[in-house]
């Protein structure tokens, strides 16, 4: 089944869900589906149970951090200054707000097909970082969602046991985020005796 067909199938079976195709520009040509977080558990259950798809094996679960993206553009406009027309250069800044992204790689063991790549976005990367957990659908996401919570700070709602997994309890930051700054005592080079 092609991605367009899967998209159409999802839209007919789950009313109100928003699905879009994300094109991958690399030679691997592994395109993916972006789904909305409200319908994510329903979509996941459908993908697993649908007789045409039977995506019973969720292999890889991970997160990606996309910080705020700032773009500066120089725009030339004509203005009339002191009665003379002049070309004035203006710089404009546009900020695309950042978000956190969870990525699921789904396969079918009985049909020996895959991967279907599913992505879910959080609205931003500061206040609203919750996503629905897909562990109730695929147990294999249990430790991997815990890892995404630990290292990226995505809060998975409905996860049976959401605790830090690799960092220690009491650690407060999320080290895989792009803007993470390690504490000064971690810089062993500067601490080394010279």
């Amino acid at each position: 089944m092609t991605l367009e067909e899967i998209k159409g199938r999802l839209e007919t079976h789950i009313p109100g869900c928003q699905v879009s195709i994300v094109i991958n520009g690399s030679p691997s040509a592994q395109h993916s589906l972006l789904i909305d977080r409200q319908h994510a558990p329903e979509i996941a259950r459908f993908l697993r149970q649908d007789s045409e798809l039977q995506l019973d094996f969720c292999s890889n679960v991970t997160a990606v951090d996309w910080p705020d993206h700032e773009k500066t553009e120089k725009i030339k406009t004509k203005k009339i200054v002191d009665g003379v027309e002049k070309e004035v250069e203006e710089t404009r800044k546009t900020i695309t707000p950042g978000y956190l992204e969870a990525v699921y790689h789904l396969f079918s063991v009985c049909k020996k097909e895959g991967p279907l790549i599913v992505r879910i976005h959080t609205p931003n990367r500061a206040e609203d970082v919750t996503l629905p957990s897909l562990t109730p659908v695929w147990r294999s996401a249990e430790f991997q969602e815990r890892e995404a919570f630990d290292l990226f700070g995505i809060v998975f709602e409905g996860h049976p046991d959401l605790r830090r997994i690799l960092m220690w309890e009491g650690f407060t930051d999320h080290p895989m985020r792009k803007d993470y700054v390690p504490p000064p005592e971690d810089d062993l080079e500067s601490l080394a005796v010279r």
Binding site: N24, G25, S26, S59, N60, V103, H105
Partner: peptide, 24 residues
């Protein structure tokens, strides 16, 4: 410097499915 994009590859390692997911 690969072109912008992503790839997931997996092999049968002695322990099981070893996968690598890269975004460029």
């Amino acid at each position: 410097r690969p072109k912008a994009g992503e790839a997931y590859a997996r092999i049968e390692s002695p322990k099981g499915e070893l996968g690598f997911y890269l975004i460029s």
